[in-house]
Amino acid sequence: MYEEPHRWVEAVGNRRQYLDDQFKQGSPIVALSYAEGILLLTFSRGTPKIYEVYDRIAMGGMGHPADLEKLRFQVLDMAHLEGFNRSPSDVTGARLLKYGLAPTVKQAFEEIFKAPFIVKILLAELGRTKERDQFICVDYDGTFEEVNTCAVLAGASSIQLKLLDDMKRRLEGGLPSLKAAADIALKTWAEGALLHQTVSSDVHLDDEKGEDLEQSISTKEFDEDEVLSHLRQTLTQHTLECCVLDRTVSGSSKYRSLSRDEVTELLPSAVHPA
């Protein structure tokens, strides 16, 4: 039944709709450069969503945990074999993604008789200098995007764009300290989570109702109190994951997961757990 080209296009379209639905309730992943490194942050329920990939590379993911694990192992194997056979400096986020992850995800997405990967992945790479920090995001269809300074994964591309814009605006004054970066990341995350709530399960962003919604997402202004109260509420139910690629850490591995005390220290006073 898929021999005819338009059938195939239709099947791929259905797939997009199915996949878009899968991410609607996901927890956004926020990553940004700060003065001494890169911060990655999200809230999770049990299963972690941020991982160490290589000496200077970290990964954050949204989607199905089993798919995420499968791809995480693919990236780990590729990175470590390359690092061993050539040199750790030859392991770069761009190569892992362009020649490893993205083709795999794209192939699975287009093989319409098989299940696609339900994933969106973000790779953050700590540069030798802060100007060379890099972020790459791959979507469920294998398309990827390289950005500097900050990146975000969210349930829909319109939300992702909105959050990225807001975050860039907040970063205009130059690279923040770790505490200020955590503040930006937390607020961005909460805005993303609030936007996810507005995208109800029966609206698709590409239909007519969806276009209005897309418009309202891009122009949405947030009330600071609403954002903070959402954060306070989330903190009681979810685990806050905070990981850094820290340029000041000695040794080759720069990845560090922040301890509970460090995380509490970073929280803005308005959302401190009682």
Binding site: Y51, E52, V53, D55, F73, L76, H80, G83, F84
Partner: peptide, 10 residues
């Protein structure tokens, strides 16, 4: 060195 790192990360 690579084995220990690979174990920890995976």
């Amino acid at each position: 060195e690579h084995s220990f790192k690979y174990y920890r990360r995976s």
